[in-house]
């Protein structure tokens, strides 16, 4: 256990999800369908946690609950020890398919949350400048979303979620809609933004590679009802680039373990992660 982890163990977790459940009524019957049942997960301050699971396992339902857009039927979500009561600016979300306001320019999109927060005009301009620079979109401030590529739109969405300075960044399959190359670039950019800002990130995805490549820990979900099957420590070194670690043995061992968990009902006995070649791979460009 590293020093950071030991310190985190003793303090209050950033997000504590305990016994969470969310049910939906089935059409034409009194039976209830549990999208999420008895979901437990604890996330530390500044941690990057990915949630991976098959489609329909309740990932989006989980995020809706975390955002506060819907209310749980049981259990609770604590942020900094306090139960959440609804959407608030301490949690920012990046939605699937960007969800940019098409009638607003890049600048005005980023300003949306700031307007709600009541930030003054001059200060807004300052923040926009900062976040536009962070996501490398300088010169596109006055463009409309339709004038941007998918990757650029995604960056606007990230800037918009970061601009009002939430402590937690929730991401709902944000790179699902962009092409493979752009996705890889975006993953590395996200990691670098995360390293710069130190936000706590909860990232939902159905891609195992993405989940392992980005995360400190991967929460593997099962389906019907959606709950955490296992949490895997990734332990790949930081600062990290997904493109660097992708071909290492450690990465492959972890991804195949996640894969096994998703495939089988019972988790297999744990195997040791060799932790051999990652450092070399990153620092000496010795890709296997």
């Amino acid at each position: 256990m590293t020093g950071v982890e030991a310190a985190a163990e003793t303090s209050v977790p950033k997000i504590e999800i305990v016994g969470l459940s969310r049910a939906f009524g089935k059409k034409g019957s009194k039976e209830k369908f549990y999208a999420i049942q008895d979901f437990n997960l604890s996330i530390r301050q500044g941690e990057f946690v990915t949630v991976v699971g098959p489609s329909g396992c309740g990932k989006s339902t989980l995020l809706d609950l975390l955002v506060g857009l819907s209310k749980p039927d049981g259990g609770s979500i604590l942020v900094d020890g306090k139960a959440i009561t609804g959407p608030a600016l301490d949690r920012g979300i990046v939605l699937q398919g960007y969800a940019l306001f098409p009638w607003r320019t890049v600048r005005k999109n980023i300003e949306f949350g700031l307007e709600i927060k009541g930030v003054k005009r001059g200060e807004r301009a300052e923040l926009v400048r900062h976040y536009v620079k962070l996501v490398e979109l300088e010169g596109f401030e006055n463009h409309y979303p339709y004038e941007l590529s998918g990757g650029m739109q995604q960056r606007v969405a990230i800037a918009r979620a970061l601009a009002y300075d939430p402590e937690v960044l929730l991401m709902d399959e944000p790179f699902a809609a962009v092409d493979a190359q752009t996705r890889e670039t975006m993953q590395d950019e996200l990691l670098s933004i995360w390293e710069k800002t130190g936000k706590t990130v909860v990232f939902v995805t159905h891609s195992i590679e993405e989940a392992v490549g980005l995360a400190d820990r991967v929460a593997v979900m099962s389906k019907n009802p959606g709950r955490v099957k296992a949490v895997i420590d990734v332990g790949l070194p930081r600062p990290r680039r997904v493109s660097d670690v992708r071909n290492t043995i450690d990465f492959n061992v972890i991804t195949s373990r996640v894969w096994e968990l998703l495939q089988n009902k019972e988790p297999l006995p744990e195997r040791e992660i060799p932790q051999t070649n990652v450092e070399e791979a990153i620092h000496d460009d010795a890709i296997i």
Binding site: G68, L69, G92, I116
Partner: peptide, 8 residues
């Protein structure tokens, strides 16, 4: 959803 998540 985007607007509501920002507390609109």
């Amino acid at each position: 959803r985007a607007a509501r998540s920002m507390g609109a």
